[in-house]
């Protein structure tokens, strides 16, 4: 009995983690492709994902019906996913960041003791990261 309860809890935790990740992903996609959406779609998604508003609250503010808000969000999400499958900018961004992180790790390991050079390299890497 106890095991099943624990399993349930674990599943719940994993589920909630993936839902939160999903949300982060949507926010990233919105950052990248937001300007390609219609104004209404962008504003609605910004309220939904950026400000964590409920459908009812968005509907009260934008004067669209609750159902309309839901449709708008679904359509906009579909659009974002379509852009990502076609262009893959988020995937590329994440790959670049992770390889820079790896590079950073190797440099730090290789250059222990040489603080001055390390800090210069670190600065350069930060600059690259900010430009991506």
């Amino acid at each position: 009995m106890e095991i099943t309860v624990q399993d349930k809890k674990l599943k719940e935790l994993q589920n909630s983690a993936s839902l939160i990740n999903e949300r982060n992903k949507c926010n990233m996609l919105l950052d990248i492709y937001g300007t390609l959406l219609t104004d209404r779609q962008r504003v609605t998604l910004e309220l939904y994902y950026g400000e964590d508003f409920s459908l009812g609250e968005i509907s009260a503010q934008t004067k669209i019906t609750r159902q309309g808000v839901m449709n708008c969000i679904h359509k906009a999400e579909k659009k974002l996913i379509e852009f990502e499958t076609k262009l893959g900018l988020l995937r590329k961004y994440e790959e670049l960041i992770s390889s820079i992180d790896k590079l950073e790790g190797t440099i730090i390991q290789a250059g222990i003791g040489n603080r001055e050079k390390l800090s210069k390299i670190d600065q350069a890497l930060m600059e690259v990261k900010n430009k991506i």
Partner: peptide, 10 residues
């Protein structure tokens, strides 16, 4: 939650 932070850095 309220989103802060820069573009692509939520």
């Amino acid at each position: 939650l309220r989103r802060m932070g820069a573009k692509k850095a939520p």
